[in-house]
Nucleic acid binder design. Sequence first.
DNA 1: TGAATGATGCACT
DNA 2: GTGCATCATTCAC
Length: 199
Amino acid sequence: LPADRRALRIGRIVEVEAYVGERDRASHARFGRTARNAVMYGPPGIAYVYLVYGMYDCLNVVTEQEGRPAAVLVRAVEPLEGLAAMRAARWALLARRRRRPPAADPGARPPDVPGDDRLASGPGLVAAAFDITRADTGRDLCDPTSSLRIEPRPGTEPIPALVATPRIGVAYAGEPWTSVPWRFAIAGHRSVSGPARLR
DNA sequence: TGAATGATGCACT
DNA sequence: GTGCATCATTCAC
């Protein structure tokens, strides 16, 4: 990893989606156990990272007992620390998409990188901001010594108000799976994905 | 402000 | 070969 992306990065998860069981026709487990989704059948707390649309990695957390394939997709994170590293990673993502050489000055912000609170406002952007890739699949996100981990909400923070909506981008699954309200977000939070009017 | 579209790699039928 | 748990850009308004 380049030096400007080695800093500690911390964020608050503000939006997730649940994918539960082989019956869920929107889930990667809908065809049963395969090479790609095998980790979903394992113990909970483990990372499952997959590639979507040939371009973006997406981070999931396995959530159920061994043998029951389920995971939560981390759709958006509020950046808290290590913002410069997140910006650098975002810039690298943009440069890759445009097939342009990396920018000369790593400290500057390109004009099309959005405000800091939206650096990880989408599942592909979460992985990009934290430099998470498919190579992270299988890592234990609950290990407090891991360099990639999820920690409990500090007890000093109140439980935020949530909204539940249908999941994004699963029209192919058919009913009831396209409509079940299994997307959860902090109500009105500025770092939630999507256009402002829907936050 | 919103709808349409291209980029891009690979898992899967 | 088909289609995808997405994003940025372009173009209309």
